[in-house]
């Protein structure tokens, strides 16, 4: 076991991941309280409320946060919310465009029900700037239409005009980190804020939920799958969680085998030494 080539383990993990993606197992899954709470916050949105969603992630986090964005858009669309999409990192608007196709599929109209305003520069300074005066930062949308000509932008002047702000955030590598959103949106503007973060960011974002500074928190692929369950629309995240569970099972078996092999080796050595 000790002399096993790591490349064999890599290929094994890849194969174990691929099988449930081709044919999902449908493993049972429990919905945790934070996901329930997030779902309840979105469920309270009234028809006509405007919700800001910020795609603060790049390619590396799309697999975790992309399904979250799709589920949230489906839920918000069902509640009749208007969606304003923004991004604090340059790559974000591309992923926003990809996710917003969900709304197109649900019969929503670009410009009337939702809009993608694209990237805003400056990270925390940028958040503070649009929170005070929205149109000083966003003058045109991602398709270069002036915001004054976009119906969904009517009446949006500052952060308080949003019923809820959601940042789907990749963490310290980004420009508008979760801490910045909490400082500028929750503390300075007193606007309800919810975060969806990558699994790596989970432990350091959780205290904000515990202290009531964010209304909801979704962490990684697991929460995305749980949200799909809450929506009763199992999708890509649910299947990916099967792959995640299968890979974890193999890793645990390998850890157990490695330890058994080590103990047997040690026992044999001790026996050899005593002879």
């Amino acid at each position: 076991m000790k002399s096993i080539n790591p490349k064999i383990i890599y290929v094994l993990i890849l194969l174990v991941i691929a099988i449930p993606l081709i044919r999902p197992f449908g493993l049972p899954m429990m919905v945790m309280k934070p996901t329930h709470d997030f779902f309840a916050v979105v469920d309270k949105i009234r028809p006509g409320d405007t919700v800001m969603m910020s795609w603060d992630y790049a390619a590396g986090s799309d697999v975790e946060l992309g399904p979250v964005a799709n589920s949230l858009l489906t839920h918000l669309s069902e509640k009749g919310a208007k969606i304003i999409a923004v991004s604090s990192i340059p790559d974000g608007p591309m992923f926003a465009e990809a996710s917003l196709k969900v709304l197109e599929g649900l019969g929503k109209v670009y410009g009337e029900d939702y809009v993608n305003l694209g990237f805003f520069a400056g990270g925390e300074s940028g958040i503070a700037a649009w929170a005070d005066d929205f149109k000083s930062v966003f003058r045109a949308d991602w398709r270069k239409t002036p915001v004054d000509q976009i119906p969904v932008m009517k009446g949006i002047e500052k952060a308080q005009d949003f019923a809820l702000v959601i940042s789907m955030n990749t963490g310290p590598g980004g420009y508008g980190v979760p801490d910045a959103w909490v400082r500028q949106i929750h503390v300075a503007e007193k606007v309800p804020l919810a975060l969806a973060v990558t699994a790596i960011m989970g432990p350091q974002t959780q205290p904000y939920l515990q202290s009531g500074q964010i209304q909801g928190l979704l962490i990684g692929l697991r929460s995305a799958a749980e949200y799909e369950k809450c929506l009763e629309k199992p999708g890509i995240a649910t299947a990916q969680m099967d792959a995640q569970s299968a890979a974890h099972a193999v890793i645990l078996i390998l850890i157990a085998l490695g330890n058994i092999s080590y103990l047997l080796d040690r026992k044999a050595k001790n026996k050899g030494a005593s002879v």
Binding site: L14, Q244, A247
Partner: peptide, 14 residues
Amino acid sequence: NASMGFLSMLIGRA
């Protein structure tokens, strides 16, 4: 959580 995040990236490419 970090290991779960890295596995998610691999799952995305797979």
